[in-house]
Nucleic acid binder design. Sequence first.
DNA 1: GTAGAAGCTAACATCGATGTCAGGTTCAAG
DNA 2: CTTGAACCTGACATCGATGTTAGCTTCTAC
Lengths: 125, 125
Amino acid sequence: MRIGELARRTGVSERSLRYYEQQGLLVARRTAGGHREYPEAAVDRVVHIQELFAAGLHSRTIYKILPCMRDSDGGPSETATPLLVEELAAERERIDRTIDDLLRSREVLDEVIATASGQPPAEAA
Amino acid sequence: MRIGELARRTGVSERSLRYYEQQGLLVARRTAGGHREYPEAAVDRVVHIQELFAAGLHSRTIYKILPCMRDSDGGPSETATPLLVEELAAERERIDRTIDDLLRSREVLDEVIATASGQPPAEAA
DNA sequence: GTAGAAGCTAACATCGATGTCAGGTTCAAG
DNA sequence: CTTGAACCTGACATCGATGTTAGCTTCTAC
């Protein structure tokens, strides 16, 4: 498929898809005229990439772990080096901390919402 | 206390503290010479602010909800308007989505780590 | 009063994914 | 062949919190 369809099917802008390619996250065959031609598997791959971006990983990190991920084609084509594993463990910890922060913040929001919704301030009672 | 101590005690840079003030998130009395002078409660307040920043909220949003938060001084000094509540609910949903993304991504990382650590790739078997 | 630490303001830099625009080429259907 | 949609590259803009620097002032302890 071409870039327009891939963008439509993944919800990722063409701009971003080209950026992913530039960062080595996505490859595409080229038409005689230079247009990108993606295989079906590209859809899954873009979804994976998005997930990792959503986790706050940098493209450089994603670049390193992508070959180690179970792809739609089957098993991973490569195994993570100890160094990469160490880096991923650090990312994992960062993610854990982020989740904790989010849970705490969500509680704060809930408290404010609850106060405003259910319990009119004492001054009004 | 002055800005240096507040920075030390909260782990937030002086630069950021001044920025918070500029955004209206933090107020400080001023010395005759213009130096900032913070009350003890500022420590808690800065911690709150950091939590909300960590959740991905913008300073403008934090500005709006801060007066509605239970402060170290006691109850909230203001109650959220319905409009604000709606906005906070949207933030809450965003946070939920973010958490989901993070959980998914963490699983991906765990899988890669597990593969690299324990299970040599199938092609070798 | 004086030296050095600590503060002040203002301005500019940064990071990274993404938006957007310009100017040109290719593709597909008539 | 022609036309309009889709695509190409390249460059510049954006957002927002924070880092950094410069040049100056204030504070504190001697």
